[in-house]
Design a binder for these strands. Structure first.
Length: 497
RNA sequence: GCACCUGUAGCUCAAUGGUAGAGCAGCUGACUCUUAAUCAGUUGGUUGAAGGUUCGAGUCCUUCCAGGUGCACCA
């Protein structure tokens, strides 16, 4: 049996008191006419007019035969004034046993208190739902026009585990998630305006692919086969390009069985999109336009603040090849180096390189260590070593490179794009190289997908592909330091009790 | 996975190794324009868990659990 503490017990007892007074603590509906902000923003027109509002009691000031409280609805908070000679003795007696956290419906008229706060003068009140678990009490006060908050509900663990409480008492949290939704909507609108088709592809896959990562493994009972939760949807979306769709996209939950930190959650959201007959140059402009559209639609500006930096998202963004970028930040041109030379260069920079890593991964390490954190303004890093991009098309002038770019903003990669590899013979050879890396011990090397090869052999038009990490994009646009702050329910260890 | 930090009442936090406390919330009472409402009184604790050292542990030691931050890996 669940342990019931004293506070909950008192509230449960109140349920009995209410029922003895023939008050149903859990009625079925309430017809409201306004929400809090509708009234606060339209006071002139609504002054002395009747309104019906509903919300959660967030603060109470009892004054004998009168009382004030604040109700919170989905828009915000508004004050309610109750007095005995208006709502009656019984209603006031009921109100006195209500708690912060209860839902109340109020029928009243709009007025301003003598201190100037827009308030609902209640004629009738109705309990809409009784809360039996205490809410953290956050108090706030206006001081020199600034809002000062007292006893804020701040424990990160409790906030993440009980997000519903976090959302109730920390209004700025709600704003982040509203923006998240608007960002996704803006993105979807932009893609639909550009003749993309939204599609769905399997989450459970017999062969995982499309990215370098370790998967979650599961089992299908009837078929008695191993299935993997997708780490990307790239290979399926390309099959659709083969099938004749010219522009497709999917917002996908992907799953990667790796560590968790400020930038990683085991499940995360990515949008991937593919465009036939285009290359990565086209996609760079598309990305610039997409980001400009999202920022101006959702934030009303292309200038954002992130982690203390002012960032301008307006096109054009700087374009820098990976080798140029490394030369700029280390002073060394590594474009001609083989694996041995790269190893000793990494050593000189005091970057540790495991023996299982090939030349491509070593370059990536150097880049990640010395360049990426310094790229604050939007920058396209283009033209990656062929070894680290087995699904990208070879560079049109340099066969050691592929046509790939990653936009870096605020020192973090936010997306990934390439001119897609559609040469089936080369694609098979690249998979073979990956198998070699796997044999060498690289657990994230990609797995050969015979059906995917069959699709490419059937013939895929020239195609540009793009993946954008939605969680990181939201972090960027809402200036949040951790991925946990843009996920309603970030992954946590189970509570032990 | 490794390192460092944190864990005390519903929430926010105190407590030179010496009787576990405060504010808010709750409860009782007063108050018909309050707003961190105010005033008087008052309940509430296996100090994350288990061991150990000690006459005595919230405090010191060990292990474990949970969280945060950094590193490693990844998007």
């Amino acid at each position: 049996m669940e342990e019931i503490n004293q506070l909950i017990k008192i509230r449960r007892d109140k349920l009995d008191v209410l029922r003895e007074k023939s008050i149903n603590p859990y009625p079925y509906h309430f017809e409201r006419t306004h929400q809090s902000n509708d009234i606060l923003e339209d006071y002139e027109a609504l002054q002395e007019k009747p309104v019906k509002i509903a919300g959660r009691i967030m603060s109470v000031r009892l004054m004998g035969k009168a009382a004030f409280c604040h109700l919170q609805d989905s828009q915000g908070k508004i004050q309610v004034y109750l007095r005995k000679d208006e709502i009656g003795d019984e209603a006031l007696e009921m109100f006195k046993i209500l708690d912060i956290g209860d839902f109340l419906g109020v029928d009243g008229r709009v007025f301003k208190t003598k201190t100037g706060e827009i308030t609902i003068f209640a004629d009738k009140i109705e309990l809409l739902s009784k809360s039996i678990r205490p809410l953290p009490i956050v108090k706030e006060k206006e001081q020199d026009g600034e809002k000062v908050v007292f006893d804020q509900f701040a424990d990160k663990e409790l906030r993440y585990r009980q997000r519903y409480v976090d959302l109730i008492v920390n209004p700025e949290v709600k704003e982040v998630f509203v923006k998240r939704s608007k960002i996704i909507t803006a993105m979807r609108d932009f893609l639909n305006q550009h003749e993309f088709l939204e599609v769905e592809t399997p989450v459970l896959q017999p062969i995982y692919g499309g990215a370098a990562a370790r998967p979650f493994k599961t089992h299908h009972n009837t078929l008695d086969t191993t299935l993997y939760l997708r780490i990307a949807n790239e290979l399926y979306l390309k099959r659709l390009i083969v099938g004749g769709f010219d522009r497709v996209y999917e917002f996908a939950k992907d799953f990667r069985n790796e560590g968790m930190d400020r930038f990683h959650n085991p499940e995360f959201t990515q949008v991937e999109l593919y465009v036939a007959y285009k290359d990565y140059f086209w996609m760079m402009e598309f990305v610039e336009n997409l980001f400009t559209y999202i920022a101006s639609t959702v934030l009303g500006t292309t200038q954002i603040k992130y982690n203390g930096h002012d960032i301008e998202l307006k096109a054009p963004w700087r374009r820098l090849s990976m080798f140029e970028a490394i030369r700029e930040f280390t002073g060394t041109d590594i474009s001609g180096m083989d694996e041995t030379a790269l190893r000793s260069f990494a050593d000189k920079l005091k970057i540790e390189i495991g023996p299982e890593l090939g030349a491509g991964k070593i370059i990536d390490e150097i880049f990640g260590e010395k360049v990426e954190p310094n790229l604050i303004q939007p920058t396209f890093i283009i033209d990656y070593p062929v070894e680290m991009s087995p699904l990208a098309k070879k560079h049109r002038t340099n066969p050691r490179l592929v046509e790939r770019f990653e936009p870096i903003i605020g020192g973090k990669e936010i997306a990934n794009c390439f001119s897609e590899l559609n040469d089936p013979v080369d694609q098979r050879a690249r998979f073979m190289d990956q198998m070699d890396l796997k044999a060498r011990g690289d657990e994230e090397a990609q797995v050969l997908d015979e059906d995917f090869l069959r699709a490419i052999e059937t013939g895929m038009p020239p195609t540009a592909g793009l993946g954008i990490g939605i969680d990181r994009l939201v972090m960027l646009m809402t200036d949040q330091p951790s991925i946990r702050d843009v996920l309603f329910f970030p992954h946590m260890r189970p509570e032990s009790k």
